[in-house]
Design a protein around this nucleic acid. Structure first.
Lengths: 223, 223
DNA sequence: CAAATATAATAGTATTACTTTCAAAAATCC
DNA sequence: GGATTTTTGAAAGTAATACTATTATATTTG
């Protein structure tokens, strides 16, 4: 059976030319994910990517201003996809508590292969988000990017979940901090689990203990 | 009154020549902190630093292999200093709960100027740690650095605090994850508080609400 | 004061992140 | 199906960066 195809749309000013609109564009996206994962963002260059996909540096520059803006594109795509999963996963659920538990599960679960979205490998994309997304946020131009609205989706996700918490306990004073703690913590613990053993009980990126940890932590905090 | 001078020692393989041993070395450290804060790590270069301190690129290269290893030095220095504050701040305290509370306070408090250590501006150093330390950890060579023992202090801090938690509640299953959550969360929330308003209730880097947030969170989690 | 060491001045290299130009190929329009 | 527009490829060029190497000049030390 053919499954439902979902198209994640990102802000138009993230690219010079929509990579979803052409074959070369899609190749740039799918292979950049693989190559950034392979080399790390610092060693990743448009020249190397061009060689990989039998194209040229200048062709890639027609889609993205810089390798940084390509990473920003992937970052925005990822969080839009997560938002879609959150909305889809909690639809028709009346109980705020059930919605919260489901939300925590979606945020802290390891990614499984999702065939609904063709050319993007979400498992490797998450690996990139885990190891490289701080290169999108921790920069001198973060405020500029923020003003352009590039963190809108990320912030909306936090707001959405914080609202569920407020529904459950309107008196809890730090719902956003609690949610941010989880969203950021999932990424960071996933990274450190496979690099600095000893800082976390998590064994690797596929360990599901994060669900358990954050469910317990959040429910106790807001009880 | 002359205050107690404390000398923080870092691993010898972090530098080519000990910057604490000469006037130029100390100038490199103190001014690199100011310049990295001013320009951001990406735009910071040894050439610019050399100009600032009326020296030359090649002289700075005699102390540090690369700008990256200078950042690693600052990173290690910072965590050694935090460890010293933790040990000093919980000495002679028998109750594990009191030690835990004090620890949380030390980790999540904004930094105040500490005149005990002369040429290093700890307030600005923390700003650098907040915005740049991920450039030490989130890199392809993190495993290599880990093997060289450069994250030993950081990991020991987590272990230390996790042990206090285990003393209070030996059955809590995720003491390291909980501690890591706090240590990493403090840094990340401090960063985002001043850049992405809306993701946290924290107003800025000087807001003390983190103490309150983490004290409540951790005590409820392990109760 | 001599010898050893540290620093400054200068020049040079490979790589990177991009830009420009122009020709060839492909898609689109009538 | 041929003309036109758009997209891509090939090649060369630029400024900046992250270092290295060499030699001369200070500065420290015994």
């Amino acid at each position: 059976m053919e499954s439902l195809k979902v198209h994640i749309k990102v802000n138009e000013d993230l690219y010079l030319k929509d990579p979803e609109s052409t074959k070369l564009g899609k190749k740039i996206i799918s292979h950049s994910i693989l190559l950034i994962d392979e080399l790390g963002f610092e060693s990743f260059t448009f020249k190397k990517l061009a060689t990989k996909i039998n194209s040229t540096e200048s062709s890639i520059y027609r889609y993205f201003e810089s390798k940084y803006s390509l990473l920003l594109y992937l970052y925005c795509w990822y969080w839009s996809w997560i938002e879609y999963k959150l909305v889809f996963g909690t639809i028709n659920t009346n109980s705020a508590l059930v919605r919260l538990k489901k939300t925590i599960e979606i945020i802290s679960s390891p990614i499984e292969i999702d065939n609904d979205i063709s050319h993007i490998n979400e498992v490797i994309l998450k690996k990139i988000i885990i190891s490289e997304s701080i290169k999108v946020t921790h920069t001198k131009i973060v405020d500029e990017e923020n003003e352009k609205g590039h963190f809108k989706v990320y912030k909306r996700i936090i707001r959405r979940i914080a609202e569920i918490i407020q529904e459950i306990n309107p008196d809890y004073p730090y719902p956003h901090m609690l949610v941010f703690s989880m969203i950021d913590g999932v990424i960071e613990q996933s990274f450190f689990s496979s690099h600095l053993s000893g800082v976390t009980e998590m064994k690797d990126e596929h360990d599901t203990c994060l669900i358990d940890f954050y469910t317990d932590l959040i429910l106790k905090a807001i009880q």
